[in-house]
Simulated assay, not measured.
Amino acid sequence: MWTTASSSGAAAQRALQEAEKAKDWGFAMPPAVLLSQLVEGDEESFNLALADALEAHRAYYQVADRADDPDASVNLDILALACHARRGGWTIRVESHYLPQDLLRAVETF
């Protein structure tokens, strides 16, 4: 289980502000909301944020020729956070083609 620092809320807020700037600049930042829920230790909100992050990933890569991009199939930032949560004992209730279930199950053995 994770412990939360008193500054985690402020750090999450800064991350969200940077993510908004990145949208204006035209590129995606790591999933700040997903990370903040992990840091806060909120499993339910993490699963909701995970679904949102995967939906945003899917929507981003449906535009123009992005579907052919090698990064379209899996977002490694999202996958890493989901694996970290799973390793911490959380249940990942989101199923998606963008979230390889075999990798999440493999995390359980480590």
Rank of each mutant, 00 (worst) to 15 (best):
D42G: 05
E95Q: 14
T3A: 13
L81F: 09
F27I: 05
R105T: 09
P30F: 08
E55S: 13
L76Q: 14
H97D: 14
V33N: 07
D68K: 15
Q62P: 03
G41I: 02
V39E: 09
Y60Q: 08
S96A: 09
L16F: 08
N75C: 13
V107C: 09
L54Y: 00
L16I: 02
S6C: 09
C83P: 01
Y61R: 03
H97P: 14
D102S: 14
A32G: 02
A11G: 04
A10M: 06
E108S: 15
A64Q: 14
T109R: 15
A67M: 10
N75S: 13
A5Y: 15
G26Y: 02
L34W: 00
V94Y: 00
R86I: 03
L16Y: 01
E20C: 06
R66A: 09
H97L: 12
Q17E: 15
K23F: 03
E18I: 15
V63R: 13
A67S: 06
G89A: 02
R93P: 03
L38F: 12
T109P: 05
E40D: 10
K21H: 05
Q37W: 02
G88M: 11
S36F: 04
S7V: 13
A53Y: 01
R105E: 11
P30L: 06
E44F: 11
F46C: 02
L16P: 00
S6W: 12
L38I: 02
Y98A: 12
E18S: 11
D77V: 00
G88I: 00
H57N: 02
A10G: 13
